[in-house]
Design a protein around this nucleic acid. Structure first.
Length: 635
DNA sequence: TCCACGACTTAGAAAGAGCCCT
DNA sequence: AGGGCTCTTTCTAAGTCGTGGA
């Protein structure tokens, strides 16, 4: 495996190709700033040998894991790698026709479908229990695309989806998945091993002397497109991706992955200005999909680190920027006022930028700059508060954003002005015929002038991280035990998730599991009462007897009570935590918005094991932060 | 000049793994 | 040992934002 990678390692002291000196300066400057900011450990010089890999032995696992890319010099802007070798993607398994005895019925009569039509029919059959298949748009799109796969005879027979009966097929698949669950240990083990083999062979690449995990090395299988929310394209057929659709990206001097026998790649390119290994164009939106590296990889981690450094730079100038936009609310230029109000929302409410979308191609969702008049209501007074703006719109993934926010008088007056003489479906922040640019582009250009690298999304990162830090300070009680401290952490995390509007559907089993927990608590309480009674009687007993043995009994009973108290406390904390978390998803903010060094520092400060905060995957992703953050880290 | 396209991050749902209780 | 529940992992859709080419 990776023969040429080994070769490369031998000549490890690769030299950078020609780089514009400007870029070098920029990179150096940036690096310096970051070193100061993060008190990062000393960066090794480039000549320092990368851990030598013995070409006879496999790369030592531990050594690979211990690689601290964050201590290495960064590449100049634009160049993403020097060497890249991989095995190409894993394709979806080919379609296996249904057994003869599994029937499809049309208009009450058995009908044998051609393989192609049958395959698409199985996609629908597999989703029969899903709400999707009841939606008109889904059915219409599916039927249209299905007909394209039919033979002409099938096309002339099958003219109405409602006459199609997929239930037998559906039952077959249910039985299949049931059978899979019932498989013996050995069979399951075999499948597991096969998956591991696949991961071992295709799940890794070599990028610049290091073996790195690939995030999604499997090509998306064909199926029916499941958009989120009210998507106009739901139900359309996502076609099967063939090697002929695939662009391979790797280095010239690497072993180029071989296409499956009898096939060719669409293209093999060697572009080290991008990070992806494989790409193809998807047929629903016509957009490009990529195979890229795992979050634990150098290339993703560096970018992530950089993101938080940009947010920290915003921290230094956010006051200035806030003063600036408050001034701009008074501007005589309408464009500037709109920009300033939009920025105020992005900052105060952590809204997304809200780029322009092509109408009718996606679900109707908006962000800040694409808000329409119909999405806000102005209340000069509401529930005893003045100047309240009521937001109600669908954001990313069609998640509803609903919020009533008191705003400053000037903002309120401006909003009234922006809404004057407009229809509900008009843009709140229109372009005023002054510019053809959409508000996001106006805004981001302005932000770029205020701070290098500043864009609308940086505010979300900044506000999320600063909120976590401040909430942790506020909520952590030094006298609390570990579970209580973790509850505080989760609460701080939750404050961020609420700010960012990260929601989830309440788990289907929520009520039930809550009741289960409650009965556990009740049982524990009883147990505690019993233990206390026993302790009491043991004490009384010891008073009378005054011997060693009864003293010992008292001690052990005392311990038992203590233990049960702790267990009860833990359960109660768990219940509170879960209740408060019902509709809130903590994962997204933890993974994408919270500077991990804040969490690491908090753990170090209070002696909380990092495993309580980050699971294995998260620890891998945030290895850089775990390694470098000390307890006094300040975002 | 601008805008469609490309690259990359962020997102919730669903599937899978594993744990705990009976 | 099996069933249910929870936590983790996988999946891929849906955003953001910069830029290259008409």
């Amino acid at each position: 495996m990776f023969a040429s990678a080994v070769k490369l390692v031998e000549s490890a002291d690769y030299k950078p190709k020609k780089i514009k000196t400007e870029d070098i300066k920029k990179a150096k400057k940036r690096k310096q700033e970051e070193e100061e900011d993060s008190k990062a450990k000393k960066v090794k010089s480039k000549d320092k040998k990368v851990p030598e890999v013995d070409k006879k032995k496999k790369p030592k696992k531990e050594e690979e894991q211990k690689w601290k890319w964050w201590e290495e010099e960064r590449y100049p802007e634009g160049i993403k790698w020097k060497f890249l070798e991989h095995k190409g993607p894993v394709f979806a398994p080919p379609y296996e026709p249904l057994p003869e005895n599994v029937k499809f019925y049309y208009d009450g009569k058995v009908m044998k479908l051609s393989t192609k039509a049958e395959e698409v029919a199985t996609f629908f059959a597999k989703m029969l229990d899903h709400e999707y298949t009841t939606k008109e748009i889904f059915r219409k799109n599916f039927f249209k695309d299905w007909r394209k796969e039919m033979t002409s005879e099938e096309k002339s027979t099958i003219t109405s989806l409602s006459k199609c009966d997929f239930t037998h097929m559906s039952q077959y698949f249910k039985a299949q998945s049931e059978a899979r669950k019932q498989m013996s240990k050995e069979e399951k083990q075999k499948i597991k091993e096969e998956n591991e083999r696949l991961l071992k062979e295709y799940g890794y690449c070599v990028m610049d002397n290091h073996k790195e995990r690939i995030a999604n090395f499997k090509i998306e299988p064909p199926g029916l497109f499941r958009g989120r929310g009210n998507h106009p394209k739901m139900g359309m057929l996502k076609r099967r991706i063939m090697p002929e659709d695939i662009i391979i990206n790797c280095s010239k001097d690497s072993k180029i992955p071989a296409p499956p026998p009898g096939h060719k790649w669409k293209e093999v390119r060697h572009d080290n200005k991008v990070t992806w290994l494989v790409s193809w164009t998807e047929n629903i939106q016509g957009s490009i999909k990529y195979i890229m590296l795992n979050p634990s990889s150098r290339i993703k981690g560096e970018k992530d680190w950089q993101k938080y450094e940009t947010a920290r730079r915003l921290k230094k100038c956010v006051d200035k920027i806030r003063n600036q936009y408050r001034e701009d609310w008074k501007s005589k230029e309408m464009k500037v006022r709109q920009r300033a109000v939009a920025l105020y929302f992005i900052d105060k409410l952590a809204l997304r930028a809200g780029n322009e979308k092509e109408e009718g191609e996606t679900a109707d969702t908006v962000g800040c700059c694409s808000l329409r008049v119909e999405h806000i209501k102005l209340h000069p007074e509401l529930d005893g508060q003045e100047y309240v703006v009521e937001f109600d719109f669908l954001g990313k993934d069609s998640i509803r954003y609903y919020n009533k926010v008191p705003v400053e008088k000037r903002v309120f007056k401006n909003l009234q002005l922006f809404m004057e003489n407009k229809q509900p479906e008009d843009d709140l922040f229109d372009r005023l015929n002054v510019s053809t640019q959409f508000m996001t582009s106006i805004l981001n250009k302005h932000l770029q002038d205020l701070m290098e690298g500043l864009t609308a999304k940086v505010f979300r990162t900044y506000n999320a991280s600063i909120t976590l830090q401040q909430q942790l300070k506020e909520l952590t009680n030094p006298d609390d035990n570990i579970p209580a401290k973790i509850l505080s952490y989760n609460r701080a995390n939750r404050a961020v998730a609420i700010l960012c509007n990260h929601q989830r559907a309440p788990p289907k089993t929520f009520e039930k599991s809550m009741m289960n927990l409650q009965s556990k608590i009740d049982a524990k309480k009883e147990q505690l009462a019993d233990a206390r009674r026993e302790l009491k009687s043991a004490k009384a007993d010891a008073k009378v007897r005054r011997d060693e043995k009864s003293k010992k009994t008292v001690e052990s009973k005392k311990k038992a009570v203590q233990r049960i108290e702790e267990q009860l406390m833990k359960l109660e904390v768990q219940a509170t935590d879960r209740e408060e978390n019902k509709q809130i998803a903590l994962g997204t903010s933890k993974l994408n918005y919270l500077d991990p060094r804040i969490s690491v520092a908090w753990c170090k400060k209070w002696g909380i094991p990092i495993e309580k905060i980050y699971n294995k995957t998260q620890r891998e992703k945030f290895a850089w932060a775990i390694d470098m953050a000390e307890e006094d880290y300040e975002f």
